[in-house]
């Protein structure tokens, strides 16, 4: 029932797109088919196995985060967040790195397929829970939010563009070289709640920070590294745009 609804919403959005957009009829058919069975479900299932093996599964993660297993989904729906024992605001994949280290293992790199899968599973624990990030919860969160906003709004790079140049409310829905500009915070794009997602154009599961890097590269902004304070801050800022949207991992993106 729910799937059909999403499918309907998606095809309505695509139909609105019309001929000029780069999704051809064949692309559209593929998108519809993938909505029925997102290829990334397989990776997420693999991620569950990895979490079990390296982090003690859901229970190990809950223990590390000092929350009950019952409260875990709610807690995960608030990431990136300040974690006292990690002395800072961290994204969920960074928590998994710390947890692996505690278990005396070499943490997966943030850019590894293993980490994409494992963090996708970890975030999917919060599926159907509303994003509840609190950017005023404490001083470090306030600071991360302010930094994220600054990075988001500051023009830079070869063309002097900022994220805001293409994602501000006054250009949403306009067309950039055949692509409609998405509203990162609305229920349809739901950027804060749908990554890690499967990207059809890359045929792979990828994270939101990787997606940021994609925009940076395309728009000639110098690409900043995964896990940097600024990347986490951007994730805080963008997740907050979609506060209240339900988490639905893995997302499916063009």
């Amino acid at each position: 029932m729910k799937k059909t609804l999403i499918l309907l919403a998606a095809s309505a959005a695509l139909a609105f797109g019309g001929e000029q957009f780069s999704m051809s009829d064949a692309d559209r058919a593929m998108y519809a088919e993938m909505l029925e069975s997102n290829p990334a479900e397989m990776f997420v299932a693999g991620g569950a196995d990895l979490l079990e093996e390296h982090c003690g599964g859901d229970a190990g993660l809950a223990k590390f985060l000092d929350v009950s297993e019952e409260k875990l989904p709610e807690y995960i729906a608030g990431f990136p967040r300040y974690v006292k024992k990690l002395e800072g605001v961290v994204a969920l994949d960074q928590v998994l790195q710390a947890l692996m280290a505690q278990n005396k293992q070499k943490p997966f790199a943030l850019k590894s397929a293993e980490m994409f899968a494992m963090s996708a599973y970890a975030k999917s624990i919060a599926n159907d829970v509303e994003i509840n990030i609190d950017v005023t919860a404490n001083a470090p969160m306030k600071k991360a939010y302010a930094l994220g906003k600054e990075v988001y709004e500051t023009k830079r790079g070869g063309r002097g563009l900022a994220c805001l140049s293409c994602h501000s409310s006054d250009v949403i829905g306009s067309i950039l070289r055949t692509q409609p500009l998405p509203d990162l915070g609305d229920a349809e794009s739901n950027s804060g709640g749908t990554w890690p997602a499967y990207r059809m154009t890359k045929s792979s599961l990828t994270t939101i920070q990787k997606r940021f890097q994609g925009c940076m590269q395309n728009a000639l902004l110098a690409v900043i590294p995964l896990g940097s304070e600024e990347m986490v801050a951007l994730e805080v800022y963008i997740t907050n745009l979609g506060k209240g949207n339900a988490i639905a991992i893995p997302g499916l993106k063009r």
Binding site: A101, T154, A222, P225, G227, E229
Partner: peptide, 16 residues
């Protein structure tokens, strides 16, 4: 153990 590389230098060079 957490990857948290520096981005400040890259950004500083990239600003207009």
């Amino acid at each position: 153990a957490i990857e948290s590389p520096d981005a400040k230098k890259i950004l500083k060079k990239d600003y207009l």
